[in-house]
Design a protein around this nucleic acid. Structure first.
Lengths: 155, 155
DNA sequence: TATTATTGCTATGTGCGATAGCAATAAATT
DNA sequence: AATTTATTGCTATCGCACATAGCAATAATA
């Protein structure tokens, strides 16, 4: 924020907000990181409306689709380790959004409660709008190439 | 890793590594986040060769281009707050890669030392290779659209 | 000259991710 | 069937990234 005051000014955006230096802006990897950060910040701020963080919303989306996922399985899907799933699910359980249902004597399924289903509906509305807005920010000429490119970079 | 063992199997990748659930994979925002994470992990692992983290490498790249940047200015460019620039620059200074040079009685420029310049050369080699590899992973048809799309999403 | 802004810093809190270890149980091997 | 191996859900803990609040010195502005 505020005026750059950089002695050696950015040649490309003479007076605009100091985004990335020219040297950095040229790097696709840097652009990728910044775009992801920007968009995730945007999504985060939209999710305050449902008092959820991105990870929590992701878990709701997931268990809303598959009613018999275990904590470990969810962790593998979203790249969160078993140990770190504990506080994450505890939070959702505390908020009354999920419930645990024994599958056998070792594993338990994570399932939505009624409140969880309601919250999920709002999450879906928010994420759908978010995704739509995201795609619309991309110039039409590039739009259809974006997701395929991302998928090629993996996950 | 290991076999999914998901009771409700992933319909699209019957036996492959469990990446993202179908519901998640459809979301551009999710794909963006995952691609960024994957690529940053890749870059990080390449940077162990120069014993630097991504942020540190970024700072070197930056001060290598502009010899009179202050801590505050660097922070604004790379989105790191003043307070958090302190340990970051302390690390680089400790490693003998940067040096502080007074601009006036309040501000100081962050400049490369000889060792810093040498390290930067290696960083450049690594990042150039990384960026090239990244772009090559993207199918040719989508390649040229990628960076413009990212820039549209902002930084 | 008086006020306001900026710089570089300390101190501190919070949340995330990673690692190691553990008891119970399930799955695989022999 | 018995034994070994793997998996599950968890605790405890460490380090890192990031944010906030505050501070004294100094520079910039009104």
């Amino acid at each position: 924020m505020a005026t750059p005051a950089a002695s050696v000014a950015n040649t490309f955006e003479p007076d605009g907000p100091l985004r990335a230096d020219a040297a950095l802006a040229a790097l696709p990897g840097y652009a990728l990181r910044r775009a992801a950060n920007t968009m995730m910040a945007e999504l985060s701020s939209r999710l305050v409306a449902v008092d959820l963080r991105i990870v929590h919303a992701t878990v709701l989306l997931l268990v809303g689709e598959r009613p018999d996922l275990t904590s470990s399985e969810i962790g593998r899907i979203i790249d969160v380790q078993r140990a770190n799933m504990v506080p994450l699910l505890a939070r959702l359980e505390n908020d009354g959004l999920i419930r645990r249902e024994p599958l056998d004597r070792k594993s338990q399924a994570i399932v939505l409660t009624a409140a969880g289903a309601e919250r999920l509906a709002k999450v879906r509305a928010i994420t759908e709008q978010f995704e739509a807005d995201l795609m619309e920010r991309i110039p039409a000429a590039h739009r259809e190439h974006f997701v395929p490119a991302l998928h090629a970079l993996g996950g």
